[in-house]
Every structure is written in C-alpha cells, then in structure tokens.
Design a protein around this nucleic acid. Structure first.
Lengths: 223, 223
DNA sequence: AAATAAATGTAGTGACAATTACACTTTTAT
DNA sequence: ATAAAAGTGTAATTGTCACTACATTTATTT
C-alpha cells in the first residue's frame, strides 16, 4: 500500500527490534513530548499519509534515530499520538454524571456535552483521522476510537434510557438503539458539513438539540 | 503531499497538455471502458493512495500513454470513476416518488429506499472513498457526492415535511433539519460499524426504521 | 572522573510510483 | 492504398519517503 521498506522482518520470532523503548528521565521525556506535539500538529493537519517523519524531526529537533527508538516506526508514532488525544477527549465525558434531574433536562445536559466534545477542533481532527487514514486495512486505531467514543456514549445514554423504560416512564422497544438514534439526531446533521470544511454555528447546534429532544421525548414519553 | 512530479507546469498559460481527450469511436471507447472498470475495482479495494496507475494498466491492457491521454492524470481517472459511480448510485433515488400514501407509509418507503442505497456495496465503497481520500485538501469530489447524495435526500424529504407542516399535519419547527434528523436516525447508527468492517443484518435495518418512524411520527404528529 | 548509555546530525539506501519518452504497430479517414 | 491519427509496450526519469548506519557529542551513573 504505502511504502514500507523496513518490513523485511521474516516473521519467525516475536520481532524485538521494533519494541518501542521508554526513556526514563529528563531530556528523553522532553524530547518525547516535543516529538509527540509536533507529530500531532502534522497528523492533524495533513493526515497520516501526508506527514513526513523527516519533517517532524526537522521541526521538533532531535534525531530520527531517537524517534525510531521511542516509537518503533511511523505507525507507532501515530498510535501514540492518537491514543493520547483520544483519551484526552473522551475520558472526561465518560466520567460525567448527567442524570440528576428530570428526563428533559438530563437529555439536554447530555446532548450539550456530547455536542461540545464532537465540536472541538481536536474532536473533529481525531474523527477525520480515524475515518480518513488506515481505513483500508483493519487497525487498532479504529477499535480504540470506537470503544472510547461512540460506543461509550451509546452505553451511557442507553443505560439511562433502559432505567427509564424499566420505571415505566419511557415507551421504547430498544433503548440502546434509541440512544444511538438520539445521538445521531444531534450530531449526524453536522457530519458532512464538518468533513467538508464548513463551520457550524453554536445556534445551529442548539436548535438541533432542542428539536431532537422535542421529537424524541414527545415520541416515546409514556402517557 | 503525495508524489506528483509532473507539476512542473509553470502556471502561465491555461495549460493545454492536461486536457483529457475524448476518444470518439470503437476501440478507444472499449479501452476507456475497460480502464474505468479496472480502475474502479482498484480504487474501491485499495483507496486512492493505495492504487497504482501502473497496476491498472497492467491489468486492463492497453498502455499508460492511452490512460494519460484520456484522463490527464491519476486524479482525473479517479474523478471519472467517481462521478460515474455516484450518478449510478444516486440518480435513481433522486427520481423516485415516495409520496403517494399516508405519512407513515411514505416515511417507510423513503426510509427503506435510502437504507437500500446506502447499504449497497458500491454505496459503502463510495462513501469510504469520499471520506477517506482527498480529504485534507478540498476537492470537487466531495462537493459532487454531497450534492448528489446527502443533500438530495434532505431536500426530497424536507420538501415533503414542509408540505405536511403547511397542511397542519405535522408540528415541526424546521422541516429540513427534521428531515436530516430522521435520515440520521435510520442510517447513523450503522455508520461506524460499517466503516469498521461489520456487516449489518437486514433485520437491524428494519428495526431501526420501525423505531425511528415510531418516535418521529409520535413526536411531531399534530394532535 | 571514568565508564556507560542515550541523543544528535548527517548522509545514505532501497522501494515505490507517477509521469514522460520513444520507437513501433494498428486503425481510421481521404 | 496511403497518410494521419490513435494505440501499444517498454524503459527511463524523477521525486518522495520510510527507515538505517555511523561517527560524534552529551548526559547519567557508579
């Protein structure tokens, strides 16, 4: 696919030369951090195929040798950046408690938070990367993103809807599907525009959320 | 970004060497068709960056020279394939008449048709291509796809919802936003699974459609 | 402070792939 | 049938990159 002349590794043994080392102290840690920073900038701006490892090193200082010792290869560097940013983006969301008031308020709070996460420049950049790169060969990247992002959102909201259903407050056949559908109502309409470079106004997000809640609640509230 | 050694064209004159020629008769047309066929296969399987022009010619027969005369360059070939397949996929959908019965039946018919279009292997492949390739630089590809696909769907359903609103049958603030939200409810939940290689069962599609209609109609039907 | 380990900088290497050149053959139109 | 146009096959050109090698400098540890 892409050029990868280093894969002469005749797959016999577990291949230890690719083991990314971890620098323990001081200078090494700074270099590592700087490399990650610059790499992030490049990957976010130009995509995986579009960034050159040489460029990163040229900009970050340090040496190719160091980069390869730390991250093994280009994909290793990418994965490191990706995991870091994905955690940064989704972890706070996953630990938030949305369910303290009435259903409408709760949906509103959840929706606003989700919209905020997916609207952030980093959120958009990560999404583009996940969808855009390494996509014709199955990679771990996708799994990580999917589990930490979309799947977590569906689980959190789905659990809540399930409870409301059990209490007889909502009339829903499949609460987890419903969760996914609600989520799509509030972020789906902006997917293409975002991918295609348009910027979304705060007010549009708000309107989508308002209308989604109106339709959704009206649609499944037990009377 | 990608390698493109041919762009030595000092931009002075309108550059006529890149003008893709159109073969008028017989053998040329067949070659062209064969090239497009093989190119489609490769682009659909390996993505833009992942396919090699040389490979295409090797498999399709004919000569590099011919390919370049017809399509100008790799991107030209890609665009040709892309337009062809996008038209093929969306044009029938755009000319269908969904609105002959009651609202629920109409939504059902529309939804089923839309799900069919987006579930087809070509539909998925095209979507992947649009999202996956040529995405860090704005390209015409995206515009074509967006207009012919998503935007058309929203317009068709949105027009209908608007009419229903005007007749006082539906209670909706923004019918076009609502259209987009309905569409997302029935295809959004399958986006990631599809991108990540899962196959979707007929029955899942059906359930999503059923529940979406239930929530949506219940949610905005004028009582 | 000496020995050991890590980091640097520069300069390769090897592959791959888009595009062009060219000499030659086949088709098509006059 | 014959000249012009289009098509073919092969090989060369040119760039770009990931990745490696190595000789040298800097930091860390005992």
């Amino acid at each position: 696919m892409t050029q990868n002349p280093a894969n002469q590794s005749t797959d016999k043994e577990p291949v230890e030369q690719t083991k990314p080392e971890v620098s323990t102290n001081k200078r090494g840690l700074e270099r590592r951090k700087k490399l990650l920073e610059v790499a992030e900038k490049h990957f976010f701006s130009f995509g995986y195929a579009g960034t050159s490892v040489n460029e990163i090193v040229k900009e970050a200082g340090g040496s190719l040798n160091t980069l390869y010792r730390y991250f093994g290869n280009k994909l290793g560097l990418f994965e490191a950046v990706f995991k870091l940013k994905t955690d940064e983006l989704f972890t706070p969301f996953a630990h938030m408690d949305f369910w303290q008031d009435d259903i409408e308020t709760n949906l509103f709070r959840f929706g606003e938070c989700l919209q905020r996460v997916t609207s952030t420049p980093d959120g958009i950049a990560i999404y583009r990367l996940v969808v855009t790169e390494n996509n014709f060969e199955q990679s771990e990247i996708q799994r990580i993103f999917y589990q930490l992002g979309p799947q977590t959102g569906i689980r959190i909201l789905g659990d809540y809807l399930q409870r409301m259903k059990d209490k007889g407050k909502l009339d829903l056949e499949d609460p987890y599907l419903a969760a996914s559908q609600f989520i799509e109502m509030i972020k789906g309409p902006f997917l293409y525009p975002r991918l295609f470079g348009e910027t979304i106004e705060e007010q549009q997000l708000h309107q989508a959320l308002k209308q989604a809640i109106h339709i959704f609640l009206n649609g499944c509230l037990q009377k």
